[in-house]
Nucleic acid binder design. Sequence first.
DNA 1: ACACAGGATGTTATCGATGCCAATACTCGG
DNA 2: CCGAGTATTGGCATCGATAACATCCTGTGT
Lengths: 345, 345
Amino acid sequence: MKERTREAAGRPPAMADVARVAGTSVQTVSRALSGHPSVREKTRAKVLAAVDQLGYRKNNAARMLRSGHSRTIGLVTLQTNFYSRIAVTSGIEDAAHEAGYAVTAATTKSLDTSAIEGALARLADHGVEGVILAVPLIHVSERIEDLTRSIPTITIDGSRTDATEVVAVDQAMAARLATRHLLELGHGTVWHIAGPSEWLDASSRSTGWRLTLEEEGRTPPPELKGDWSPASGYANGLVLGRIPDVTAVFVASDEMAFGLIRALHELGKRVPEDISVVGVDDIALAEYCSPSLTTVAQPFAETGALAVAHLLRQIADADAAPEPASVEPRLIVRASTAPARASGG
Amino acid sequence: MKERTREAAGRPPAMADVARVAGTSVQTVSRALSGHPSVREKTRAKVLAAVDQLGYRKNNAARMLRSGHSRTIGLVTLQTNFYSRIAVTSGIEDAAHEAGYAVTAATTKSLDTSAIEGALARLADHGVEGVILAVPLIHVSERIEDLTRSIPTITIDGSRTDATEVVAVDQAMAARLATRHLLELGHGTVWHIAGPSEWLDASSRSTGWRLTLEEEGRTPPPELKGDWSPASGYANGLVLGRIPDVTAVFVASDEMAFGLIRALHELGKRVPEDISVVGVDDIALAEYCSPSLTTVAQPFAETGALAVAHLLRQIADADAAPEPASVEPRLIVRASTAPARASGG
DNA sequence: ACACAGGATGTTATCGATGCCAATACTCGG
DNA sequence: CCGAGTATTGGCATCGATAACATCCTGTGT
């Protein structure tokens, strides 16, 4: 029925085959294909013709074995469907591809040290030249230190080891933008539903929120905590909605924000008339669910691209000093925030 | 400041180093590590001890060069943030990892034949043993045929080439569940906002919808078309909301459904009182946006796992006959659908 | 005690590309 | 027209693991 006939010869052509057809040595073929300067134009043409004729493609395994360069980077992510974690990967793959690198993914189900060690080890086994860690490192084990020391590593929104460079969105700024926006609308204070404290971005937002309030001379109310899921936003909303003087909430993610809004709704509170809500991420639905959500957009694609750029720089020059980099978030005002009503008015 | 000291020796230990420490030959080490039966327990222990002591890890490039097995599979996806495309990858990575395989991702920005060829070629270059194509193949070029013939390939929700096995969610069934649900609620007919017709799952849903209506003796109304994005759902909603007798809409994705609902809202139509809406996917927010969305849940994780299982079977036995497989979707009734009001009542 | 089956281990060649060094072909100045 | 000097090119060893084949042990039956 179906025949998996590989090549006529039984196996794909090797460089030697190309050399034979082109009438040169393998060495010349190698040089011609890797753009070495001292190959005569005419020779290069002959080689390319042979390559074309045979449908030759370089064997990456052989190249890698010999040269140590796999042209592959690894990506460690937590296996969730939370929007933000997914959005960066797209930017990463894009930038990597642009630079001629492939991306091998290793997802972990938990944030256990051992799970992350496992993911790193798997990537190392597959010969990646560098790794992008898009998970928060709760606890940096010795083994992780070892692995990140032996392979160039970039952490996104994470804590750093002494061998790890960090690329991050300025989450404190995100929190500041959101909190200030609400204060400027005249709200007396701003409540906060944070993400899990193991996540550095969650705790940065939390700190940013707290500091902004303090700068403005307000006492931060107690912080609530979610797990990024809409359900956890909802659960927190059932609590928050019962506290009389809550008029403004900054939520650490859009998905939680919509969960919150639904809970408030069920408790008879209107958004934004009674309570204003700001999220973070600017997911695709932020504009289209009701009410459309005021949120802080994160430049996910740029973050990914920046991480790749830094990683490649570090792969190219292992001694390059780590330079923390960050990108700026942006407030997008929509319909979930409104001026505070004059109290008692 | 930071020293990228690799190993003390200057380079990672090789199998020969292990053999030296264990006092055996490399071959025995190889056998011990790949679970070959005829290795004495005592010898295996010595080898494992040496491995442990040296922190040895197999060099995948070398193994691959010699044996042709990279223990890596490739995944081609379209670079979008549309929920469904993302959700399967998580199932794929999980199942692959379970089986000891790594996943290398190649995203394409467009569905051009050449873009897909490029993605496949990149994966082939990196020595993947098989490929999962999670993009619709609009036009199967000769080159794609070649590539899929030389590498085991599974297509998810896509059209098949003569060398490609297909794993799919039964999209016709999804459409049937949604449409029938609406008809059972007493709606005279059901409108449909479809996804891009290049996507096989979109057109399967469209056909399923049309057939169900015809089976029930209704004439299908004209079909509207979106591009999976919330914005396109919104745009279609602005049209649909102006047609007087529309009371039920089946939308090909949740994100478009929420766009539709927002447009209807703005036109003064209430969901579900005036118009019932059913989506597809069951995204995390489906339950938490207002109104919570009646939708057809797709078993994304299983789909991914199934694709991997089939692919590995095919890798193991290249002559195994392709067996199309499909998994069943499930209707989840929430608050966006309601019984039709007695017309004129 | 001897030969033999079969398990356990060692040897050698090999996968395909590339770094290093040697060898050849070509250029130009004198 | 020749030699120095450079532009091209080729030969060989090599990366690390494994397949195939060879060898060396055990234990066992008669």
